[in-house]
């Protein structure tokens, strides 16, 4: 086992931009972080026993607040949570003391194995009970609040009876978890399911939002030739997503905001520039809050 890292209790995540950490950016990020104020990592990449991943993350953690973002817990799974995986998640969170800790409203495992994708859930009283029970277990086991992220949707279920926003509102109320609002996912889902993205934001329980995600999407076409957006995280954040982000920040004020860029990863300066763009929105919101006398 790697030497156990002992850190001070986690600082609140700054109301500034962070980026998803990529090992190839390690040196550039340490030398010239620019406006990047914190880093998010996928918990599963740090579940090995030792080696370079842990050494890098420990060095990063000494200088920056971290967010641990799980991608493999399968909170929506019919088969239940994997106790071994939950124990590993707890261990990573304890080792690195992140400021933020989150997972997804999705499932990714079934009896045959782990499918490495965030798969969709219908929204019903049955799935609501299941998701709440699983989040209760996560928060009890890890010993802290988690944030739950809204998914990108590509299709409709026959038997959904609740709106996603109502589902998330109920989950947050019943479990006390916070929410991670992925603004790109909202735009992707709204386009794919032909809804209004602004109406989705208006219906979203914004008071529970503890973190925001921004990322790039690709464009495809559905069975009838209508646009089908794919949550690809492989390019810059699209302009309409920046506009929707502004719409959100205007309502809730500055929040820790992550730039996700996981495929066709660019050189560090390009990623840092995306973070700067988010910072401009956040700083403007902070200034306007202060002007209205709402700042602490």
């Amino acid at each position: 086992m790697p030497a156990q890292q002992i850190f001070d209790s986690p600082a609140d995540a700054p109301q500034r931009a962070g980026v998803g950490f990529k090992p190839q950016h390690f040196h550039a990020a340490m030398e010239a972080p620019g406006g990047v104020a914190w880093f998010e990592v996928h918990a599963e990449n740090y579940m090995g026993a030792g080696g370079a991943p842990h050494r890098m993350l420990a060095a990063l953690r000494e200088r920056f607040p971290l967010s641990i973002h799980g991608v493999g817990l399968s909170i929506g799974a019919e088969k239940g949570l994997d106790p071994d995986h939950l124990a590993r998640l707890k261990s990573v969170v304890e080792q690195y003391g992140p400021s933020l800790f989150s997972e997804h409203l999705a499932w990714s495992s079934h009896d045959v194995g782990y499918l490495n994708d965030l798969l969709p859930l219908p929204y019903s009283t049955e799935t609501l009970q299941r998701v709440c029970a699983h989040i209760d277990l996560v928060q009890q086991t890890v010993g802290r609040q988690m944030l739950l992220e809204n998914p990108s949707s590509y299709l409709r279920f026959e038997h959904s009876t609740l709106r996603e926003t109502d589902f998330l509102k109920e989950v947050a109320q019943r479990t006390g978890c916070g929410l991670l609002l992925d603004v790109n996912n909202v735009f992707v889902s709204a386009t794919n399911l032909q809804m209004s993205a602004e109406a989705y934001i208006d219906a979203f329980p914004l008071e529970a939002v503890g973190e925001i995600h921004l990322g790039g999407h690709a464009t495809d076409a559905d069975d009838d030739g209508a646009p089908l957006l794919i949550d690809a995280h492989d390019r810059e954040v699209a302009d309409p997503v920046w506009a929707l982000y502004q719409y959100v920040i205007d309502r809730i004020g500055p929040k820790p905001t992550l730039i996700e860029w996981d495929n066709d990863v660019p050189d560090w300066p390009i990623l840092a520039a995306e973070a700067e763009r988010a910072n401009e929105v956040l700083i403007a919101a902070e200034t306007s809050e202060a002007g209205r006398g709402r700042a602490a």
């Binding site: 079934h110 009896d111 045959v112 499918l115 994708d117 798969l119 969709p120 219908p122 590509y154 299709l155 409709r156 279920f157 026959e158 038997h159 794919n192 495809d220 076409a221 559905d222 069975d223 009838d224 089908l228 794919i230």
Partner: peptide, 26 residues
């Protein structure tokens, strides 16, 4: 799950019909 892993399977019955290409994203 079975439909994800079998390239020849139809989209699962739980989703509304006419969404083959949408299911294919997953």
């Amino acid at each position: 799950t079975a439909a994800l892993l079998d390239p020849n399977a139809q989209a699962p019955s739980a989703i509304a019909s006419g969404q083959e290409r949408r299911f294919a994203v997953y």
